Simulated assay, not measured.
Amino acid sequence: MPSYRAVLQITGLRPGNPPERVMEAAAEALGSRHLVEATQLNVVRGVPEITLRFLVEAANDDDELAAARESAFAMHDAVEDVATTGRLRLLRQRRGKWVPVG
């Protein structure tokens, strides 16, 4: 099964939401569609980012990418309910390296 990473910048919390709710919302949204293998929080150049690694059902490349993209956008929408966000990136593992995909 192809492995993807969704990386989302977090720029602030919406009122009434604790910080841990950000990752919970992201994992719930992705987990309702795919197996979430790992979650991670990093701070890159002073900006928090969440990274979720998930598996997509094997199909042809276009269908896999479409499923991953749709799920990353659903994750973004779920997180937007609890936090303000910045850039969303989607990466796919190919030959042991994480490669950005459209």
Rank of each mutant, 00 (worst) to 15 (best):
Y4C: 09
R5F: 04
A6M: 10
A6N: 01
V7N: 00
Q9C: 00
T11R: 05
L13T: 09
L13N: 01
L13I: 13
G16N: 02
N17E: 06
N17C: 05
P18A: 11
P19F: 07
P19G: 07
E20H: 14
R21A: 05
M23R: 09
M23C: 10
A26S: 12
A26R: 04
A29S: 14
A29R: 03
A29P: 10
L30W: 00
G31H: 00
R33W: 00
R33I: 03
R33M: 05
R33C: 01
L35T: 12
Q40Y: 06
Q40L: 10
V44E: 13
R45V: 13
R45L: 14
V47W: 07
T51C: 10
R53Y: 06
R53I: 10
V56Q: 06
E57Q: 11
E57Y: 04
A58H: 04
A58S: 06
A59Y: 10
E64N: 12
L65D: 12
L65M: 11
A66F: 02
A66M: 02
A66Y: 05
R69N: 08
R69H: 12
R69S: 13
E70C: 07
A72W: 00
A72H: 00
M75T: 12
M75A: 15
A78E: 05
A78P: 01
A78K: 03
V79Q: 15
D81S: 09
V82T: 09
T84F: 08
T84H: 05
T85L: 04
R87V: 10
L88S: 06
L88D: 08
R89L: 11
L90C: 07
L90Q: 08
L91M: 11
L91F: 11
R92K: 14
Q93I: 13
R94G: 02
R94K: 15
R94W: 12
R95M: 14
G96P: 02
W98L: 09
V101L: 09
V101A: 08
G102V: 06
